[in-house]
Design a protein around this nucleic acid. Structure first.
Length: 295
DNA sequence: ATGGTTTTTACTGCGTC
DNA sequence: GACGCGGTAAAAACCAT
């Protein structure tokens, strides 16, 4: 069920969410917005374009001419020569080995992104990340799929799109550890100033959505999690476990009482982890209460 | 390689339906 | 007795150095 407020499409998360209750109605939306993306201040100024969208996902930014498969006779040309032209056009287009490699990786990024239902801005960011890495020679002699997957994962984090390393690994058909290694490589070599921090709120809405829990549970869990935002409860802990704990506490508070086992399953952590997080959260609150009574 | 931190595994005891 | 829950010790996994 939906609440009465207007539902907004959250393209960064790839989900349709209600702004007041945070309910996610779907995680498969089509981005109907402009198909260009402002990459720098220069781009922002020229907000108009003519022709096909300029995209980072193609190695030549989609700017070359395609020779289509129309019938040669319609153009008054001989078919064989048109075919030859097309072949040569493609060869010229991806002339150097480097460019072919780039085209290959960007293609992989597109495939992984669609596998993960990622909105366009995220895959564009992934392409941008890989381009930067390639420019800095970090991608030299590295696994194509690995670099592509790591770029996608980093793009997800940058956009706050709740995709775990596990999910990206699954979509790319790679080992979790492998994607993680390439991810760290990019973090260390390319995106040095990037501060990895995924808000728990993203995981909560995802978890509530995944388990089809009552929306009220989600709302309260979000509220609770926001209160501890400034505490040290997150550091080093898996956000899934924390999100699970909030959802559990919220479900008890609302009288639904979802078993820990069930939440743990959806959150992809064990019950023990949920319990430990619960204990910490509750301790945090009891400390807060004590401080309040003292003052 | 190593050491510190976190998660998982496996097991136990308690209360309730 | 089955289930949910809270707890613990030890193993495994993870991560930074």
């Amino acid at each position: 069920m939906n609440c009465n407020t207007q539902v907004i499409d959250d393209y960064d998360k790839g989900e349709t969410v209600c702004p007041s209750c945070g309910m996610v109605t779907t995680d498969h939306i089509t981005d109907t917005g402009p198909d260009w993306k402002a990459l720098d201040s220069e781009d922002k100024i020229k907000k108009v374009r003519v022709g096909a969208p300029r995209t980072l996902a193609l190695h030549d930014y989609g700017l070359t001419t395609d020779i289509g498969p129309q019938k040669a006779s319609e153009k008054g040309l001989n078919k064989a020569s048109v075919d030859r032209m097309r072949i040569w056009q493609n060869r010229i287009r991806t002339s150097s080995l480097e460019e072919r490699g780039l085209a290959n990786v960007l293609n992989k990024i597109t495939i992984f992104s669609s596998e993960l239902n990622l909105p366009k801005p995220v895959s564009e960011t992934a392409s941008h990340i890989y381009r930067t890495a390639a420019k800095m020679r970090v991608a030299k002699s590295k696994s194509i799929a690995g670099m592509a997957a790591a770029s996608v994962y980093l793009a997800c984090r940058k956009h706050g799109t709740g995709r775990t390393l596990n999910e990206v690994a699954k979509a790319s058909g790679l080992e979790r550890g492998a994607v993680g290694r390439y991810y760290r490589l990019i973090i260390n070599e390319v995106e040095k100033n990037y501060v990895p921090h995924q808000p728990v709120q993203n995981y909560i809405s995802k978890l509530v959505n995944k388990g089809n829990f009552e929306q009220k549970i989600g709302i309260v869990a979000q509220k609770l999690s926001k209160e501890i935002n400034d505490s040290k409860l997150h550091s080093g802990k898996s956000p899934q476990g924390l999100a699970g704990a909030f959802v559990y506490i919220s479900s008890v508070m609302n009288g639904y009482h979802i078993p820990q086992r069930e939440i743990a399953e959806y959150a992809e952590v064990t019950e023990v982890t949920i319990r430990n997080r619960c204990r910490e959260i509750l301790q945090h609150y009891s400390i807060k209460q004590k401080l309040k009574t003292i003052n």
